[in-house]
């Protein structure tokens, strides 16, 4: 978090100065960084928020014991949420739906889009396993009525059913529906809905902070040469290119 503010502050300082690019050496930069004090608790909260939102329950538990940071949600609910997410990721959509309904029956009852996407994923799994008849029956019985309720669902349904028309599904215009990324997309949609139902934010804070860091660096690049962070995973300061 601190890096972001430093960069912003630098940005303001430099903007006030002349138009020529100023060069800041690594030593100067590090000195400035050292001047900024960040509370350890804030950093810990940020980490805990990430672990909880992304569902790393064991890590969150360990981190809680080591750092004394209390999670803002009951850790037991994470296990349930992860079980749902994992079921979708493995293609056990029916199982996932039952688990969501056990967790909170309101989620799918009040979220038609999510419900449709889960049913669509079920259809995709049937098609993937070559269960043509069952897939058709399922599309007719379960999905067609949703299509009648909503035009955009109908279009998505048509797209999905068209998978059946191709011999080689891996090489057809709608083939990406069979891709693993489709499962991940559905899984993250369920994950977000469960988090929202638990009054929890659906995205962790850390990634948006990193996005802000990149944005701020880009802004600063126009004004100055300074030690850049290019590799976010190591956060190494690289010598300014002159």
């Amino acid at each position: 978090m601190s890096l972001f503010w430093i960069v912003i502050r630098r940005l303001a300082e430099i903007e006030a100065m002349a138009t020529s690019k100023k060069v800041i050496t690594k030593e100067e930069w590090e000195k400035k960084l050292n001047d900024v004090k960040i509370r350890k608790e804030d950093m810990n909260k940020l980490v805990m928020n990430f672990l909880v939102t992304e569902g790393y329950v064991d890590a969150a538990e360990k981190f809680r014991m080591e750092s004394g940071t209390e999670p803002d949600i009951d850790l037991a609910t994470i296990t349930d949420r992860m079980a749902v997410k994992k079921a979708v990721q493995c293609g056990n959509v029916e199982d996932a739906i039952e688990k969501v309904n056990d967790l909170n029956p309101e989620i799918l009852d009040t979220n038609p889009q999510l419900f449709f996407h889960l049913q669509q994923q079920r259809l995709i799994e049937l098609i993937r396993h070559g269960k043509v008849e069952e897939a058709l029956e399922f599309a007719q019985e379960e999905l067609a009525p949703r299509g009648e309720e909503n035009q955009s669902f109908l279009e998505e349904l048509e797209r999905t059913v068209s998978l059946l028309a191709f011999e080689d599904v891996s090489n057809c215009p709608v083939g990406e529906l069979l891709d693993i990324s489709q499962r991940l997309k559905t899984a993250s949609e369920v994950n977000a809905a469960i988090l929202t139902s638990q009054s929890h934010e659906k995205d962790p804070k850390l990634p948006s902070l990193l996005k802000m860091l990149i944005w701020a660096q880009n802004q600063l690049d126009e004004k100055a040469a300074y030690p850049h962070i290019n590799d976010l995973s190591t956060a190494t300061l690289e010598d300014p290119a002159i």
Partner: peptide, 10 residues
Amino acid sequence: VKNQIIGNRT
């Protein structure tokens, strides 16, 4: 029953 009707008006 519960799992069949949730989200499904029909």
